[in-house]
Design a protein around this nucleic acid. Structure first.
Length: 943
DNA sequence: CTCTCCCGCCATCCT
DNA sequence: AGGATGGCGGGAGAG
C-alpha cells in the first residue's frame, strides 16, 4: 500500500527520524548568527562543541537522541530571536526558528513548512517519530536533508576563526550523531572542507577544525594553481565551443571541441590529479585511482575555476567538462558527465553553505543553465605569496610532524605537484623525500634569497596576518559585540556602496573614510619588488596604480585578447539570473555598466588615469625595458592587473621579507626557484621595477589614489612578455579601456590585459604556452590590488543587493556593522593589509559570518542567498591612504610592515613550525601550494 | 519533463 | 579481518 515514496519516507524516518530535530538545530544556529549581535555566538562560538555526543552513534537511534540534542543545542545557541518573519504560525519553537530561517532563505521552503508547520510544531517537540512520521515526512522533505543544510548545521557548530590555542577536534561520530545524519554525508562535507583547508584530518574519525583562518590563503593558492593550469583558457575554450556549437548547431563539433579542450588541459599539466600521476607516476597511479576522482580534488578544481574565471560564474556544465577533461579527456559518456554533475552539486551545496558561491543561472544563447557564482572573497592578494611560496610550502608546512602526511594530503594538488591527496603512501614518501631535499637546500646557502624571502614572508604574512586578523577580530568582538567582519563590511560598504565592488575599487572609492587606515599591502614593499624582480621576474608587469582608480579601470585590450572576441560574445550571452530572484537578471549590459559606473562613481576620478596611466606605463616601460611587459593600466582593473598587483605585492613583501630573513623564506625560496622563475633576468628588471615603483608612488601621491602597482614578479619568458607588452602599448590605455567596455556588452568586462598578464605570469609557472590564451575572460578586475572582482556581484544583483542582502546578511558584518565600529574595522583592515589582506576577505568571514550565514540561508543556498561580499575592503582602503606614502617606498613600507610583522611573527609561531620543508614543492611542480596549516594541530591530542 | 541531489551499495583503503 | 572512507549512480523529490 505504501507508495514507494511513503516507503522511502518511512525508511528515512527511521534513519533520520531526527530530521526535524536536525532542522531545528540548524535553525538555531542560523538564528544565532543573526544574533551575533547577541554575542553569544560569535566567537563563541558556537561551538557547541560537540555537543552532545550523546548517544550512540546509531543513526536510527539518533533520531530520538537527536531530538534531544536539538533541544540542547537550542538552548545554548539559539536565541529565540529570530526574527524575521516568521511566517506563520509557528510559534517559535525551535522548529519555527528553523522554518523562519529557511523561509527566509527560500520561499519555497517556507510554504512547505507552513503547511507542515502546524503538524510539525506539535509533533516535533514532543513527539516521536512515529506520529510524526507523516508530519516528518512532510517536513523533512529532501531539502531538509540537503547537504547544504547539513553543512550549515555543521558550520554552526564551529567558529569561523577558532582559537588556535584551543584544539578544535571534530569527531565524525559525534558530528554524525549530533546532526543525525549518516556518516557518509559527513564525509562529503569533510572532504570539501578539507579541500579548502578548513579542516584537516588528524586521524581516523578525527578532524581538526581550522575554520576560515586559512581560507584566504588556501583560496590564493588555488587561484594560483588555477592560473597555472590555465583553467581560464579552458573555460573560454569550452564556452566558445559551446557557442560555436550552438551557432552551428552541430553536435559533432562538440566532441571535437571537447577533445581540444582536453588537449589544452593536458598541456597545463593539470593541476590536480593529473599532476599526481605526472610527477610520480607510481604514486600517482596508486593515488590516482581513487583520489583523483576524489571529492577533494573536484572541489579544489571547482573552486579554482571560480577564482580564475573573470566573471566568477561557472556553469556546472563547463565545470564538469573541465573536471572530466582533466581526469581524462574524455568524453566519456553521458554517464560520467552525469556523475560529475552530481558530485558538483554536492560540492556546490557545501560551498554554498560556506557562502563561497551562490547559485545562479546563466542564460546562454540557448538556454539557461545552472551555474554558480563566486561570492567568496575575491581578492586573494596573498596568492602571490602563497603562490610562490605557498604552493610549495603551503601545504606542507603545516604540520610539523605531520607535515608529511599533510603534504600528501594536500589538497591542493597543486598544480604542479601532484599530490596525492590524501593519504597516499606513495605520496607521503615523496613528500618525505622532498622534504629532505628541501632541508638540504635550506641548509645550503643558496640562493635566491630574495625569492625565498619574499615568498616566505609573504606566506608568513598572510598566514600570520590571517591569524592575527582572526585574533584581533575575536578580541574586537569580545570587546564589542560588533564583529570584526562588520567593520570590514562597513568599510566595504562605505567604500562601495555596493558590495560588488571590487575591493580595490571600493577601497579607492572609500578611501576617505577608511583610506588612511588601509594600506595596500602590495604597495608597501616597494623595495621588495625590486628584489623580486631581480630574482624572479624578468618581466615586471607594472600596473599603474590608480588610486582613483577606484573609479574606473580601463581595460586594455590586447590584440590577442581581441581575438577572443568570440569569448566576449559568449560572455555576452551569459546572463546571470539569481535563482532566488532578483538578481537575476541584471542584464549583462547593465551589469557592466553598473560596474563601470560604480567604479567611476566611486571615485570618479580617474580622469587622469588614462593619460597618466599611459604615461606611467610609458615611463615604466621605458624604465624597464623588460617591463614593457605590460603595464596595464590601472584603470582597467583587469584581472591581469590584479595579478600584477599581486605580484608586486608579493615582490614587495618579499623584499620585505628579504630584509628580514626568516627560515621559511629560505625554504620558500628554494622551492620557488624551482618552479617559478628562474632568476633569469631579474636584475635588470629590478631596477626597472624600482623606477616603476617610484613612478607609481609618485603617481599615487599625486592621485592619491590607491592603486598599487603590481609588479609581477613573475615573468614569463621575456619574449612573450615583450610581445604582450607591445600590444598593450599600442593599445593605448585609455582607448583600450573604452574598447573593453564596448566589448563587454554582456556585462562583463573583458580584460584583455589579463591575458597578457596571464601570459606573463603563466609563463613563469607554466611554460608560457599559454600565451595564446585566448580567453579574454571577462574579468574585470579592477582593483589593482587584489583583484577583487566584486563586480560580478554587482552585475548580478545590482538591484537586490543592497536591500535584501543586507538584511539577510545581517549576521554578517556588513552593513550595520560598519556603522558601529569603525575603529575595529580599521584595525582589522590594517591587519589584513599587512598580511592577510590578500588573504581574502577573510575578514568577512569572521566567525560570525559563518555562524550568521547559516541562519539566513539555511538550507538553501541557492536562492536567495545573499552574500556578503567578501571583498576585502580593507585592502582597498588601505591602499589608498597608505599607498601614497609608504607603500611605494620601501622604507615606508617597512614601517607599515613592522606592525604587521609582529603579528606575523606571532602567527608564524603558531602555524608554521616546520615550515621549512615545504620543499616539496619543488618537486617540480611549481605549483605547489602551500597550505599553511597549523602545527598546533599536530599535537598529540588528536591522534 | 528536467533539474537536483539523496541514499546507500560496495569498492578501497587503512588499521 | 574489520572498520573507515568515499566513488558512484539509481532513482526520487522539486519545480
Amino acid at each position: 500500500m505504501l507508495s514507494p515514496r511513503l516507503y522511502n519516507a518511512v525508511k528515512k524516518r527511521w534513519k533520520m527520524s531526527s530530521t526535524l530535530s536536525e532542522g531545528q538545530t540548524l535553525i538555531k544556529k542560523p538564528l544565532i548568527s543573526p544574533l551575533k549581535a547577541t554575542s553569544t555566538n560569535d566567537k563563541g562560538h558556537v561551538f557547541v562543541e560537540p555537543q552532545t555526543p550523546l548517544k550512540n552513534s546509531n543513526k536510527a537511534s539518533a533520531s530520538e537522541a537527536s531530538s534531544l540534542d536539538s533541544h540542547n543545542n537550542m538552548g545554548p545557541l539559539t536565541t529565540p530571536t529570530k526574527g524575521l518573519e516568521a511566517p506563520s504560525s509557528e510559534p517559535w519553537t525551535p522548529t519555527s526558528n528553523l522554518k523562519m530561517l529557511i523561509s527566509a532563505a527560500s520561499p519555497e521552503i517556507r510554504n512547505r513548512e507552513k503547511e507542515q508547520a502546524v503538524d510539525s510544531g506539535e509533533s516535533e517537540n514532543s513527539q516521536e517519530p512515529e506520529q510524526g512520521e507523516e508530519v516528518e515526512k512532510l517536513q523533512i522533505s529532501r531539502k531538509d536533508k540537503s547537504l547544504g543544510l547539513l553543512c550549515y548545521k555543521f558550520l554552526a557548530r564551529y567558529p569561523n576563526y577558532p582559537n588556535p590555542a584551543v584544539n578544535n577536534k571534530i569527531s565524525l561520530d559525534d558530528v554524525a550523531t549530533e546532526l543525525n545524519v549518516e556518516r557518509r554525508r559527513i564525509y562529503d562535507i569533510m572532504n570539501v572542507l578539507e579541500s579548502l583547508n578548513m579542516v584537516s584530518r588528524l586521524a581516523k574519525n578525527c578532524y581538526t577544525w581550522h575554520g576560515r583562518v586559512k581560507l584566504a590563503h588556501t583560496l590564493a593558492v588555488l587561484k594560483r594553481a588555477g592560473k597555472e593550469n590555465r583553467y581560464e583558457l579552458l573555460m573560454h575554450q569550452i564556452r566558445q565551443r559551446n557557442l560555436e556549437r550552438e551557432e552551428r548547431e552541430f553536435d559533432l563539433e562538440g566532441e571535437e571541441k571537447e577533445n581540444e579542450e582536453m588537449s589544452s588541459f593536458d598541456m597545463d599539466g593539470d593541476s590536480g590529479q593529473a599532476e599526481l600521476s605526472g610527477t610520480d607516476p607510481k604514486a600517482a597511479a596508486s593515488a590516482n585511482s581513487r583520489k583523483d576522482k576524489s571529492l577533494r580534488v573536484m572541489s579544489q578544481k571547482f573552486v579554482m575555476l571560480f577564482l580564475v574565471s573573470s566573471p566568477p560564474v561557472v556553469s556546472l556544465e563547463i565545470a564538469a567538462k573541465i573536471l572530466i577533461g582533466e581526469d581524462h579527456v574524455v568524453d566519456q559518456d553521458k554517464n560520467k558527465f552525469k556523475t560529475k554533475i552530481r558530485r558538483l552539486y554536492d560540492i556546490a551545496n557545501v560551498l554554498s553553505s560556506l557562502e563561497l558561491i551562490k547559485k545562479v543561472h546563466v542564460t546562454e544563447d540557448r538556454g539557461r543553465k545552472p551555474a554558480f557564482k563566486w561570492t567568496g572573497p575575491e581578492d586573494l592578494p596573498s596568492p602571490k605569496d602563497l603562490g610562490t611560496s605557498t604552493t610549495s610550502s603551503a601545504s606542507r608546512p603545516l604540520e610539523s610532524r605531520s607535515s608529511v602526511d599533510n603534504c600528501a594530503k594536500n589538497l591542493f594538488s597543486s598544480p604542479g605537484t601532484k599530490r596525492g591527496f590524501t593519504r597516499h603512501n606513495s605520496l607521503v614518501k615523496l613528500v618525505k623525500s622532498i622534504q629532505s631535499d628541501r632541508r638540504k637546500i635550506n641548509s645550503a646557502p643558496s640562493s635566491p634569497v630574495k625569492m625565498t624571502g619574499d615568498s616566505a614572508n609573504s606566506e608568513f604574512y598572510t598566514n600570520k596576518m590571517a591569524h592575527l586578523a582572526a585574533i584581533c577580530k575575536k578580541q574586537l568582538d569580545e570587546q564589542s559585540t560588533v564583529h570584526h567582519i562588520q567593520p570590514n563590511n562597513e568599510v566595504m560598504d562605505a567604500l562601495n556602496g555596493s558590495p560588488s565592488h571590487s575591493s580595490e575599487s571600493s577601497s579607492s572609492s572609500n578611501h576617505q573614510p577608511y583610506g588612511p587606515s588601509g594600506m595596500q599591502i602590495p604597495v608597501l614593499p616597494a623595495g621588495a619588488i625590486s628584489y623580486l624582480s631581480t630574482k624572479c621576474s624578468p618581466i615586471i608587469p607594472v600596473l599603474i596604480p590608480q588610486h582613483q582608480a577606484g573609479g574606473s579601470y580601463a581595460v586594455y585590450m590586447h590584440p590577442t585578447s581581441l581575438r577572443p572576441q568570440p569569448t566576449s560574445l559568449a560572455v555576452r550571452s551569459m546572463t546571470f539570473e539569481s535563482p532566488g530572484s532578483a538578481n537575476a537578471k541584471t542584464s549583462p549590459a547593465a551589469t557592466t555598466n553598473s560596474n563601470q559606473t560604480n567604479h567611476q562613481s566611486s571615485h570618479g576620478k580617474e580622469p587622469t588615469s588614462p593619460s597618466t596611466l599611459k604615461r606611467a606605463c610609458g615611463e615604466k616601460s621605458l624604465v624597464g625595458s623588460p617591463s614593457k611587459l605590460q603595464r596595464i593600466e590601472p584603470k582597467s582593473g583587469s584581472p591581469k592587473l590584479c595579478e600584477i598587483l599581486q605580484a608586486r605585492l608579493k615582490a614587495r613583501r618579499g623584499s620585505f621579507v628579504s630584509n628580514r630573513p626568516s627560515p621559511r623564506a629560505l625554504h620558500l625560496e628554494f622551492t620557488k626557484p624551482c618552479e617559478n622563475q628562474p632568476p633569469s633576468l631579474p636584475t635588470s628588471t629590478a631596477p626597472l621595477e624600482h623606477s616603476v615603483e617610484t613612478f607609481l608612488e609618485k603617481e599615487e601621491k599625486v592621485q592619491t589614489s590607491d592603486n598599487e602597482a603590481g609588479l609581477t614578479p613573475v615573468r614569463p619568458p621575456q619574449s612573450q612578455a615583450q610581445k604582450i607588452s607591445a600590444p598593450f602599448q599600442d593599445m593605448g590605455l585609455p582607448s583600450g579601456a573604452m574598447h573593453t567596455e564596448t566589448l563587454i556588452p554582456a556585462g562583463y568586462l573583458i580584460p584583455i590585459p589579463q591575458q597578457s598578464i596571464l601570459n606573463f605570469r603563466d609563463p613563469q609557472y607554466s611554460n608560457g604556452e599559454i600565451s595564446r590564451a585566448s580567453t579574454p575572460t571577462y574579468n574585470i578586475y579592477h582593483t589593482p590590488n587584489a583583484g577583487s572582482r566584486p563586480h560580478l556581484p554587482q552585475e548580478v544583483t545590482p538591484t537586490r543587493l543592497p536591500l535584501h542582502r543586507i538584511p539577510h546578511m545581517s549576521p554578517f558584518p556588513s552593513h550595520g556593522h560598519r556603522i558601529h565600529s569603525p575603529s575595529p574595522a580599521i584595525l582589522n583592515f590594517t591587519l589584513q593589509n599587512l598580511g592577510l589582506i590578500p588573504g581574502t576577505s577573510t575578514p568577512n568571514s569572521t566567525p560570525e559570518a559563518s555562524s550568521t550565514l547559516p541562519s539566513p540561508h539555511p538550507g538553501l543556498p541557492h536562492q536567495g542567498m545573499i552574500f556578503v561580499k567578501p571583498m576585502s575592503p580593507a585592502r582597498a582602503l588601505q591602499p589608498a591612504s597608505i599607498h601614497g606614502q609608504p607603500v611605494t617606498l620601501i622604507s615606508i613600507p617597512q614601517a607599515l610592515v613592522s606592525t604587521p610583522k609582529g603579528g606575523q611573527a606571532l602567527q608564524q609561531s603558531f602555524f608554521h613550525t616546520p615550515v621549512s620543508f615545504p620543499t616539496v614543492t619543488n618537486t617540480t611542480v611549481p605549483q605547489n601550494f602551500y597550505i599553511p596549516q597549523r602545527k598546533l594541530d599536530v599535537s598529540p591530542e588528536d591522534t
